[in-house]
Amino acid sequence: KRVEVKPYVLDDQMCDECQGARCGGKFAPFFCANVTCLQYYCEFCWANIHSRAGREFHKPLVK
């Protein structure tokens, strides 16, 4: 058996893009583990950032 640990998915993290400004101060539910991102995102910022060319295939890690 093999266990994969993702220590970078933490609870209670603010969106790295808007710092809570676009999501009413809620914590960010998404983390993008792609090396070009490596950031936490609220729903609004995830949709906005990941609609751009080259990022549309990134998969979010959801808390």
Rank of each mutant, 00 (worst) to 15 (best):
N34M: 03
E43W: 07
C18T: 02
F27D: 08
F44W: 10
V35I: 09
P29F: 04
A53K: 15
E56L: 05
S51A: 13
C15M: 03
P60Q: 13
P29A: 12
C23F: 03
K63A: 15
R52Q: 15
G54Q: 05
D12Q: 13
P7M: 05
K26Y: 03
Y41L: 13
K1L: 03
T36H: 10
H50S: 01
A47F: 05
H50P: 01
Q19D: 10
P60V: 04
F57L: 14
F44A: 13
F31Q: 03
K6H: 06
I49K: 08
P7N: 12
Q39H: 14
C15S: 03
C32F: 00
L61N: 13
L38S: 12
L10V: 08
K26H: 08
C42R: 00
Y8H: 11
C23R: 06
Q19V: 09
R2A: 09
C37M: 01
P7I: 00
L10E: 14
Y40D: 03
R52K: 15
N34A: 11
K59E: 15
K1H: 02
A53E: 14
A33Y: 12
L10D: 12
R52P: 06
C15D: 01
D11I: 13
K59Q: 10
F44Q: 15
P7L: 02
F57W: 13
G24R: 08
W46K: 00
H58A: 01
G20K: 03
T36A: 12
D11A: 08
A33R: 08
R52H: 13
E4D: 08
I49T: 07
G24F: 06
A47V: 06
A47D: 14
C37H: 04
F27R: 11
K63T: 09
D12K: 12
F31C: 02
A53Y: 09
C42W: 00
A33T: 12
C32E: 01
Y40E: 01
V3K: 15
Q13T: 09
E56I: 08
C45G: 00
G24I: 03
W46V: 02
C32S: 01
M14E: 10
K63H: 11
C15E: 02
E17H: 12
Q19R: 11
V5A: 09
C45E: 00
P29V: 06
G25N: 11
C23L: 05
F57E: 15
T36R: 07
P29Y: 08
A33S: 14
E17V: 10
D12A: 08
Q19W: 05
Q39P: 01
K26I: 05
I49Q: 08
W46R: 02
W46T: 02
C37A: 01
Y41F: 09
E56W: 02
C45W: 00
E56R: 12
V9A: 11
F27C: 13
A33P: 10
V9E: 11
H58K: 03
R55L: 13
C23P: 05
N48R: 13
R22M: 11
M14I: 09
A47S: 10
M14Q: 11
E17D: 07
R22V: 04
D16N: 15
E4C: 04
A47H: 07
Q39S: 12
E4A: 07
A28H: 03
E4M: 05
V5Q: 14
A33W: 05
F57T: 15
N34Y: 08
A53Q: 15
C42Y: 00
F31D: 00
K1Y: 05
V3S: 12
F31V: 02
E4F: 06
A28W: 03
H50A: 01
D12E: 07
F31Y: 13
K59V: 06
P29K: 10
V9N: 12
S51I: 04
S51K: 15
V35D: 09
I49F: 10
R55F: 13
V35L: 10
Q19T: 10
C15T: 03
L38I: 08
E43N: 10
R22D: 05
L10T: 13
L38A: 13
Y41Q: 03
K63R: 08
K63W: 03
A53M: 10
K59S: 12
I49C: 03
K63C: 00
G54W: 05
K59H: 06
Y8T: 11
G25I: 02
I49W: 05
C32R: 01
A28M: 03
Y40W: 10
N48D: 12
C37I: 02
T36N: 11
K26W: 03
L10G: 13
E56A: 04
D16I: 13
L61W: 07
A21Y: 04
F31W: 11
P7K: 13
C45A: 01
F57R: 14
R2W: 02
M14P: 12
V62F: 15
F30D: 04
R2I: 13
A33K: 07
E56Y: 05
C42Q: 00
R52A: 12
A33D: 15
H50D: 03
F27H: 09
S51V: 11
C42N: 01
V5D: 13
E17T: 06
S51T: 12
K63N: 09
M14R: 07
C45N: 00
L10S: 14
D12G: 10
F31H: 02
L61P: 07
V9W: 08
A28R: 05
F27Q: 10
D11E: 14
P7T: 11
N48P: 07
Y41D: 01
C18K: 01
Y41S: 02
R22H: 14
E17L: 08
Y40Q: 06
V9M: 13
V35F: 08
R55D: 09
V9R: 07
K59N: 05
A47I: 10
P7R: 08
K6S: 09
H58S: 02
A21N: 11
V3R: 09
P60A: 10
C15H: 03
E56G: 09
D12Y: 05
H50Y: 01
A33V: 08
G20V: 03
D11S: 08
L10M: 13
Q39E: 08
F57D: 13
Q19P: 02
V3L: 07
Q13F: 05
R52G: 12
V9T: 11
C15R: 02
W46Q: 02
V9Y: 06
R52W: 06
C32I: 03
E43I: 02
V35Q: 12
A33E: 14
R22C: 03
A28L: 03
H58R: 01
E43A: 05
H58I: 01
E43C: 05
F44N: 10
C23Q: 05
I49L: 11
A28Y: 00
L61F: 08
T36S: 12
C18E: 01
G20F: 00
Y40C: 03
W46M: 04
G25E: 06
N48H: 13
C37W: 00
Y8S: 15
T36Q: 10
R55Y: 15
K6R: 08
H50L: 00
R55E: 07
C45L: 00
P60G: 04
C37K: 01
Q39G: 13
D16E: 13
N34F: 04
H58W: 00
A53V: 12
P60T: 02
C23Y: 03
C32A: 00
A33M: 07
Q19E: 12
T36V: 08
C18N: 01
Y40T: 04
R55S: 11
C23A: 07
G20A: 03
Y40N: 13
Y8M: 04
V9Q: 14
C15P: 03
H58E: 03
P29W: 05
P29M: 07
Q19A: 12
S51G: 13
R55V: 09
K63D: 02
L10P: 11
F57N: 15
G25C: 04
H50R: 01
C15L: 02
P60S: 05
G20C: 03
I49A: 12
V5H: 10
K26R: 11
Y8P: 14
K1N: 15
V3D: 15
V62I: 08
K26V: 10
A21S: 11
D16P: 08
E56V: 04
F31P: 02
C45T: 00
R55A: 11
D11Y: 08
K6G: 11
G54C: 06
G24V: 09
K59I: 05
G24M: 05
L38V: 09
Y40G: 03
E43V: 05
E56N: 08
M14K: 14
F44T: 12
Y40M: 05
C45H: 01
L10W: 13
A53S: 13
L10C: 10
H50F: 00
Y41E: 01
Y8A: 12
R22Q: 14
Q13M: 10
C32M: 01
V5L: 07
C32L: 00
V62M: 14
G24Q: 14
C42T: 00
K63V: 08
E56H: 07
A33G: 10
V5E: 15
E43H: 09
D11T: 05
A28V: 05
D16W: 11
K26Q: 08
D11C: 06
R55T: 07
F44H: 09
A53N: 15
K63Y: 03
E43D: 10
C18Y: 00
S51Q: 14
A53G: 13
